[in-house]
Simulated scan of single mutants.
Amino acid sequence: MEYPKTIRVSSLTDERRATFYRKTYTHVALAVLLFIIIEFLFFQTPAIVNFALSLLGGWSWLILLGVFMFVTNYAENLALKSKDKNTHYFALGIYVVAEAFIFIPMLLFALQAIDGEKMLQQAAIMTIALFAGLSTIVFVTKKDFSFLKSILAIGFFVALGLIVSGVIFGFDLGLWFSVGMVILAAGSILYTTSNMIHKYDEEQYVAAALGLFASLMLLFWYILRIFMSRD
């Protein structure tokens, strides 16, 4: 089967480029909505909540992180390498479900805190504001942030090492680790948004949405951790 030739987003006409961006960010918004719906359904199922909580701490948490990283890599490869739209949606769907599951303990602890709902709202608003601001920087400057790839790879490798060490030796990574991860997540948003403009093809808007959603949720995770550390 011969696939139609695709064109880089940066080479499109202004109208077609705007259509690509609209499709991409619409799918990011839909992924967030699906995340909320799935999370709500998970919280209505005590068995799932209890199972997620049982994986906290020790080797169980490391195994869960390993599975989550595997699902992330699998979903991203599916979305990027396949030309089939149904496969793209399947990849985005399984990633959203994985995010919703791994967020169960974090959201549960946040809701149990004093003014938990207000804290969640504040963290969400800050996340969206930062995401929008960083995206705007890329669109306005039109700068290629692909040079961040090596920096991000090293940063995430170091962060993973610290997380594993923290679990094995039982120490808390603390506030500054979360601040560092927010900076890494911000860099990831710059990098992913830049790739969307300079590296992606016209038909890869679902893959672009998956990458942006992943960076958005990483940012939300650590902003929420910072808010929770104040209590």
Rank of each mutant, 00 (worst) to 15 (best):
M228W: 01
T26Y: 05
L41T: 08
S146Q: 11
W59A: 14
V96Q: 00
K81M: 07
K85W: 11
F90T: 04
Y21D: 13
F227H: 04
Y21N: 15
N50W: 00
A153V: 13
F169L: 10
L173V: 06
W61D: 10
G161P: 05
M126T: 12
L224K: 03
A52G: 08
A31W: 01
T45C: 13
A209P: 11
K199I: 00
L53Y: 10
T127V: 04
Q122D: 09
E203C: 09
I226D: 02
L162D: 03
L78H: 03
S146K: 07
F101N: 07
S135V: 06
N77T: 02
L34R: 02
L190D: 05
T26S: 13
F51H: 08
V96K: 01
S229H: 10
H88D: 13
K143P: 02
L108N: 13
I7D: 06
E203W: 05
Y25S: 09
L175G: 02
L34W: 02
Q204E: 15
F20W: 02
T19H: 08
T6L: 12
P4L: 10
I197W: 13
T127I: 00
V67M: 06
L120G: 03
M119Q: 06
G170Y: 04
S135E: 09
T45E: 12
G180I: 03
F90Q: 06
M126I: 15
F51N: 09
L64M: 11
V97D: 02
F145L: 11
I63Y: 13
I94G: 07
S54P: 10
Q112N: 12
E2S: 11
V140R: 14
I128P: 01
T26L: 15
E15I: 15
L64H: 00
L62V: 09
Y200D: 15
M196W: 00
F169I: 00
K142V: 01
Y95S: 08
S178P: 05
M69C: 03
V32A: 15
S82F: 06
F147E: 11
S146D: 13
A129H: 05
V140S: 09
I223Y: 00
L56C: 06
T72E: 04
K5Y: 07
R230K: 09
L55Q: 15
G133T: 03
G170Q: 11
A79Q: 08
D231F: 13
E99M: 14
E202K: 10
I63E: 10
